[in-house]
């Protein structure tokens, strides 16, 4: 594995060129390419926000920012996995003709999507400033917790790299993997706190037998844990409206859960190493797929 890493380092310039190509193709054919690609999350969040505020009557403060702060990382996870699932298979004609470290293909998909995610976070802060100005400069657009953002981005990136390497390698041999993946990602959206809050989950489980156990299980999904953590780091705390004993009450957001985030970090790095190991074991057989 060290030899593979060394070889990857030797080809690092190619990796950057591929990332550049990925972004160039994505933003190509339209001058507003980057803005177009932001339209999807912004429209989705606007719809979710309208539904929850007007149709379901939820009064959580700063709600649109909360959804956006969760939806952007979720979208990164989602898009990076879907792109990298096809990355090796889609370039098989090149892979069959030229040698280069094959892991460059999924890595370029992940890094390209990651850069897009970071750019989208920039737009997110512009949005927060907008909200700040719009609400008469009441809620500050960010808190001191923002310094923790890189420490969340790095393990989250590692998680995506690990999953992508696994999926891109498997998808070469079993083409049904990408169908299973899209169903899985659809379901993941519902079992991750994007539209709702981990506080909602806690209050719903509070009265139940094994409630604490189910909550821990829920947060063993690293995506759920990271999304909650992103919210706490990115959004200035506003009170969240939850239903308690049939009555809507506003509660302050729960404190940052260091234990669960720590577990998620460990899981992410282990997955990255495991994914790379599996990928390296399979990569020489890509060209020999039946």
């Amino acid at each position: 594995m060290l030899a593979d890493l060394k070889e990857l380092w030797r080809f690092r310039e190619l990796l950057w060129a591929m990332v550049e190509r990925e972004l160039r193709i994505r933003y190509k054919n339209s001058a507003l390419g980057f803005l177009w690609s932001l339209l999807n999350p912004l429209v989705t969040v606007a719809v979710m926000w309208s539904v929850f505020t007007f149709l379901l009557g939820n009064n959580t403060e700063n709600y649109s920012a909360y959804i956006l702060a969760a939806y952007l990382p979720f979208l990164f996870f989602n898009m990076a996995l879907l792109d990298s699932a096809q990355s090796v298979l889609g370039s098989l004609n090149v892979v069959k003709k030229v040698y280069f470290p094959r892991e460059i293909l999924p890595l370029a998909s992940v890094i390209g999507n990651f850069i897009h995610f970071v750019l989208a976070l920039g737009v997110f802060f512009m949005f927060l400033f907008g909200v700040w100005a719009f609400t008469g400069f009441q809620v500050a657009p960010f808190t001191w917790r923002l310094v923790a953002l890189p420490f969340l981005l790095i393990p989250f990136f590692a998680l995506v790299v690990g999953c992508s390497l696994l999926i891109s390698a498997l998808n070469v041999f079993y083409e049904d993997v990408k169908y299973i993946l899209s169903v899985f990602l659809y379901l993941l959206f519902f079992v991750s706190p994007v539209m709702y809050f981990s506080e909602t989950v806690r209050s719903a489980l509070a009265g139940r037998a094994n409630g604490a156990l189910i909550e821990t299980l829920y947060h063993l999904n690293p995506v759920a844990t990271f999304i909650t953590a992103f919210r706490k780091v990115l959004v200035p705390p506003g009170r969240i409206e939850i239903i308690q004993d049939g009555v809507a009450v506003k509660v302050p957001p729960a404190p940052f859960d260091y234990t669960m985030v720590g577990v998620a970090c460990v899981v992410s790095f282990v997955l990255m190493v495991f994914g790379y190991w599996v990928f390296n074991r399979m990569k020489w057989r890509f060209v020999e797929r039946p």
């Binding site: 060129a17 591929m18 090149v94 069959k96």
Partner: peptide, 19 residues
């Protein structure tokens, strides 16, 4: 074999040369 159809010849030179 490694050309990307949507990129220009110039961009493909860079990318293919690096491959």
């Amino acid at each position: 074999a490694g050309f990307h159809p949507d990129l220009t010849g110039l961009e493909n030179i860079l990318y293919n040369g690096m491959i």
